[in-house]
Write a protein that binds this DNA or RNA. Sequence first.
DNA 1: GTTAGCATGTAAGGAGTTACATGATTTT
DNA 2: AAAATCATGTAACTCCTTACATGCTAAC
Lengths: 198, 198
Amino acid sequence: MTRRAETIELAVLGLLHEGPMHGYELRKRLNLMLGWGRVLSYGSLYPTLKKMLKAHLIEETATALTPVTRRPRIVYQVTEAGHREFEHLMTEVGPTAWEDDNFDIRFAFFGRTDMEIRLRVLEGRRSRLQERLDRIQRELSLTQKEVDQYAGELQRHGVESVEREVRWLSGLIDAERNPTKQGLAGAEVTTTTERKDP
Amino acid sequence: MTRRAETIELAVLGLLHEGPMHGYELRKRLNLMLGWGRVLSYGSLYPTLKKMLKAHLIEETATALTPVTRRPRIVYQVTEAGHREFEHLMTEVGPTAWEDDNFDIRFAFFGRTDMEIRLRVLEGRRSRLQERLDRIQRELSLTQKEVDQYAGELQRHGVESVEREVRWLSGLIDAERNPTKQGLAGAEVTTTTERKDP
DNA sequence: GTTAGCATGTAAGGAGTTACATGATTTT
DNA sequence: AAAATCATGTAACTCCTTACATGCTAAC
């Protein structure tokens, strides 16, 4: 949240790399990408696009408008500067890179970074989560007051979720380190693997 | 997010039920309870407490201040009205109850509600998550464009997380329905199952 | 012909974080 | 004695969501 603007910018830059898109479509793709829960509102997206236009990170493409269509469908595409900004944001490895939202979007675009960067981001993310677990463990041991049944269950479930996340990251890190197996990054670690849906 | 104020209020009301507490301590407990990630800032908590004071939901207790301590440690406790408000918020089952943050805090205080309410909240939460999965599945099938390796892995992992959440809820619902087993709510359902991970 | 989805925006307002400000107490 | 942590606040600022406003296009 809070620092979501940055995230959106990076996401827009990354998505437009696939080809020109207009706002409405961007929003859908964005929601699918980082929208586990919250959805991005127009009131958030369009102003961001305007801002990016002004910063010359993206530009409007001439709209294919038939004599009939009065309403323009504005199609955006990345500029050279935008492309450089994307590279810059992706290679700039730092604390912000492993914050919840930021991590997700960066991960989604891992295909366009070097393994070195990928590893640093994955490892940073993992330590962040590990710290979280440690902190909780520490605080939990300090307040040894016996917790309520449900509150305890919630706590347990929360801890397990984070631990699961850590295992996922470890799998991915391993996969990066020895790409012995055929291409699939960490897929078989996460399991699920086979989907036999039509 | 957004409607976090409500959540904080409910949490404060619930926590103070355990006994009087001062702001600093409340904050720590709160962060431990709903703080998987974000932490609650003072700039958020204290104004909320002030607001609740004005609404007579809580009151300041006379500070045990020795002649030495100049700085008062303000201790809060729930009023009768606050207690009623807590009951009201907990029994009022509706969409807000199964929003991410709201659900967590409500769940933590399940010990103080009836099974009927608990079931409705659990089931509401489960449908919400199920809808989320369906929506994603639907959108994913529409855009059959082959996804990038990493983006795909992220998607997969996200879906699995939600599915896991659904299973957890199902376990809890079962446990509520037949409390045959000894007390422990859904603990053994969440499992942990056997971890003989390779 | 009307509903639903495509498509683009803006304005107001709320919510909460950051940074600031202050001081006490405990630990190293 | 310094550092850490306890403890309580406030103000400004940043974001973002909500609600509003408009109009096209496809399906039912």
